[in-house]
Amino acid sequence: MEIREKILANLSAVKEKSPLIHHITNYVTVNDCANIVLALGGSPVMADDLEEVAEMVGFASALVLNIGTLNSRTIESMLVAGLRAKELGIPVILDPVGVGATKLRTNTAEKLIRELKPEVVRGNMSEIMVLAGQNVAIKGVDSIADEQGSSFIAKRFASELSCVIAITGKTDVVSDGRQVCLLDNGHRILADVTGTGCMTTSLVGTFCGVTKDYFTASIAGIISMGMAGEIAQATLRHGEGIGTFRARLLDSIYNLTPEILARDGKISYE
């Protein structure tokens, strides 16, 4: 089955099955992540207390871990939930937000990768470069690395970790260590809204909840956000800005159809 056909089948499966996606995520974007999963057709749960995470993940189809607002309590919850997910064969999707900015973030991300062996790691160029052992400057939790060499880094790091590496940016790059897919949908305004990266990871997690092909699921989640960004931006009128865009981004995901994906998705391979 060709990649576009797989993506379309995955979107239909999400809307049909409404997979439960367990998040242990950051409090800045938790509401946005929940709403984007609902808009796509999934069912989010945001449980992070140590007393229930292992039980909750047992009901889920995927586990999304996001280190955007770390604390010692949620780090332990991530490890407990992640280990239980691995026991049950539930995919773990890691978003290493701001890794490299502090030792806590870097050490935590490295520990989660080492102990949980996530199926997908989704980050910006700076974050993936830090995890791959490349020198890069970090400003807060934002990327200031350029995208030169992103395909090479994604492929090599995916092969090293035996997982899918997804680098989002002007051109998104997804690799499973064997093949590299480039995605050219999106709009620069996405970077002006806090949480679009986190929401993208939630979309990836939702697609991972309906297939074992995590390479295709990652492509589906990222291209869905890119296309929704294009559609939402195109509706803006004079005087409207990122607040209106944010609401219409959710609308665009909610109204996304296999026909739209098939017609407007910009997918290529290296």
Rank of each mutant, 00 (worst) to 15 (best):
E270V: 14
R188P: 07
S175R: 01
P19H: 01
R105N: 08
R114Q: 08
A47M: 02
D184S: 11
E127P: 01
N26F: 03
T69A: 13
G140W: 11
R248H: 08
R237C: 08
G169K: 12
A47W: 02
M227D: 03
L50W: 06
A81D: 05
M227I: 14
V204M: 11
H187Q: 14
F59T: 09
S72V: 12
V30N: 06
Y254F: 14
A132Q: 05
F152Q: 15
G42F: 12
I165S: 09
G169N: 11
V141D: 06
T216A: 07
G239C: 02
L83M: 04
Q148R: 15
S18I: 00
Q233A: 12
D146R: 09
T216W: 02
T194H: 01
R122S: 15
T106D: 04
E259M: 04
E2P: 12
V141L: 12
G123L: 12
G123F: 07
K6P: 00
C208A: 15
V180K: 12
V28C: 00
L38R: 02
G265H: 09
V164I: 08
Y214N: 08
T235Y: 04
G100M: 13
G229V: 02
V53Q: 02
E2Y: 00
K15A: 02
E127V: 13
G100R: 09
E230A: 10
E240M: 08
A220T: 15
D251K: 03
S175A: 04
A101P: 07
V99Q: 03
G186R: 13
A137K: 15
T206L: 07
D146M: 09
T102R: 04
M225Q: 13
A101K: 07
G58P: 10
T216C: 07
I165K: 07
T257C: 02
A262K: 15
F207C: 12
V204Y: 00
L94P: 03
G68Y: 01
A191T: 13
L88D: 07
L182N: 15
V204F: 05
C163Y: 04
R263I: 00
D172M: 06
A109L: 13
L50N: 11
G226Y: 08
I223K: 06
